[in-house]
């Protein structure tokens, strides 16, 4: 039989199950929905706890950041590991340390973009844009406590700034600034920073990621500020990993794993 028929049947059944589930949704924006205030007659939900308590406990005004980087920091660490693992899987598939002759055959060295074009306009614009992009990215990383932002977003922007260099000039320019050795080191280092912030409290006799105990290191008054500062630390770790992996995936994809030529 036609495989599309099976697929359609599966899609229809899934759709019906989802519609059945939708019949039970709370109204949009309902303040008394279980996710907002907890099950009726039960304990208040965790989101209510975050809204009421998280500022007092962490001194971070943006409660998305405090939930992400502290209460559920363990998840966020593994999300960073997911990014790292995705990068490693892509390198494992693509990266070829082939001898030069093989590399030349497969890599798209000469493309219509590359060549004798006068690239003054593109080159100058990008040279001007890259520092601005990077400074804004650093701002986004550092300002995650107060406004939307944080390590993932800032890291993506940093990675994009290097990709911009590669697009405007060529891959070798970008690799000259950010070599394979440095992106592997920084990608690993990012998670080491994150997990290191988790292990440090363990050394001091507390649980993994219990930032409050780090107040001695930060010379702050009280565990709340220590949590706040540690969150900045882990965001920096996330940004390093995301930046490196972003650029590395681009470099590997665009040069078919040879890291030579490319777009």
């Amino acid at each position: 039989m036609n495989p599309k028929l099976y697929a359609s049947i599966a899609v229809i059944i899934t759709g019906l199950v989802l519609l059945y589930g939708i019949s039970d949704f709370p109204t949009f924006g309902d303040p008394r929905s279980p996710a907002n205030s907890g099950v009726e007659g039960g304990a208040p939900s965790t989101s209510l706890y975050y809204i009421n308590e998280s500022y007092g406990a962490t001194k971070v005004p943006n409660l998305v950041t405090s939930v992400l980087a502290d209460y559920r920091g363990y998840d966020t660490m593994f999300e960073t590991v997911v990014v790292f693992a995705a990068g490693m899987a892509i390198f494992a598939i693509l990266r070829c340390f082939g001898r030069d002759d093989e590399a030349v055959i497969t890599a798209p060295t000469k493309s219509s973009i590359d060549g004798d074009h006068n690239r003054i306009i593109v080159g100058t614009t990008c040279r001007l844009a890259v520092p601005v992009v990077q400074i804004f990215a650093l701002y986004v990383v550092a300002h995650g406590h107060h406004s939307p932002g944080g390590g993932f977003q800032g890291g993506v922007m940093l990675g994009a700034s290097f990709i911009l260099i590669a697009l405007a000039g060529n891959l070798n320019d970008a690799l000259g600034r950010f070599s394979e050795r440095s992106y592997m080191t920084l990608a690993s280092l990012g998670i080491i920073i994150y997990a290191g912030f988790g292990v440090l409290p363990q050394v001091l006799g507390k649980n993994f990621l219990d930032f409050g105990v780090l107040e001695k290191f930060f010379l702050t008054d009280g565990p709340e500020m220590a949590r706040s500062h540690s969150m900045l630390g882990v965001e920096i770790g996330v940004a390093l990993t995301v930046m490196s992996i972003m650029f590395a995936i681009f470099a590997n994809l665009s040069s078919r794993g040879t890291l030579k030529g490319g777009l």
Partner: peptide, 11 residues
């Protein structure tokens, strides 16, 4: 994780 014990489920 993170030493958040009460209430259950915030961490």
């Amino acid at each position: 994780i993170g030493g958040w014990e009460e209430p259950l489920g915030i961490s």
